[in-house]
Amino acid sequence: MTRPTESAPEVNVDTSKGEQLKADLDDLLDEIDEVLEENAEEFVRNYVQKGGE
């Protein structure tokens, strides 16, 4: 099958982008405990919906 005709990015660009993505993820993981509901078990157990549509 045909593929899009885009030139491949430079390797070093690719690497720094990968590192940036990793750093962003680490920042988010640092933040996540403050955002998560305190009692995860109870929060998850209590989330019950009726079917819809």
Partner: peptide, 17 residues
């Protein structure tokens, strides 16, 4: 349970959550 909580909170509309 924390992994399921993350799943749910991905979709939470509250900006703080």
């Amino acid at each position: 349970a924390r992994l399921r909580a993350i799943d749910l909170q991905y979709h939470d509309l509250r900006p703080g959550r």
